[in-house]
Simulated assay, not measured.
Amino acid sequence: MMKKLVILTMLMAAAYAQMDLTERGKQIFLKYNCNICHAPKNDAARVGPSLETIAIHYLGNERKLIDFLKGNANPIIEPQRFMIMKPQLYKTKHMFEEDYRALAYYLTSVHKNQ
């Protein structure tokens, strides 16, 4: 019985940590006004790719997304439109590593939660 309780507690803690990471990433996303250009779903009226599109391209490859946010990698989504995004990257170039992780987790969470 005790072993089951420990396992259940660990599973709940892991779920809470992921939920917390998603919420933290969302707060960073909103803090830097990323929502101005990036909508949750595909929206032709927006400047940048949707969160849905970002998730499709970067889910399972969050490290590449973090490298992009740090300014150390080229975009893999609509590279021809990168010049629009480039000035905004100064906001994300100097975040804490945990913030990069949270933001990447949030940006790919569209498919994780389906």
Rank of each mutant, 00 (worst) to 15 (best):
S50R: 09
L51K: 11
E52Y: 12
T53K: 14
I54K: 09
A55G: 04
A55C: 04
A55M: 06
H57T: 11
H57W: 05
H57Q: 11
Y58K: 08
Y58F: 08
Y58C: 05
L59H: 13
L59A: 13
L59P: 08
N61A: 11
N61I: 09
E62K: 11
E62F: 09
R63D: 11
R63M: 06
R63N: 12
R63S: 11
K64D: 10
K64E: 12
K64W: 07
L65G: 09
I66T: 05
I66R: 05
I66C: 02
D67L: 08
D67N: 05
D67I: 04
F68K: 03
L69G: 00
K70E: 07
A73K: 02
N74R: 12
N74M: 14
N74A: 15
P75N: 04
I76E: 02
I76C: 04
Q80K: 12
Q80F: 07
Q80I: 07
Q80D: 04
R81P: 02
F82D: 04
F82V: 00
F82E: 02
M83A: 15
I84T: 15
I84C: 14
M85H: 13
K86E: 15
Q88V: 14
L89Y: 02
L89M: 04
L89C: 02
Y90G: 09
Y90T: 14
Y90M: 09
K91M: 13
T92A: 04
K93Y: 10
H94W: 07
M95E: 10
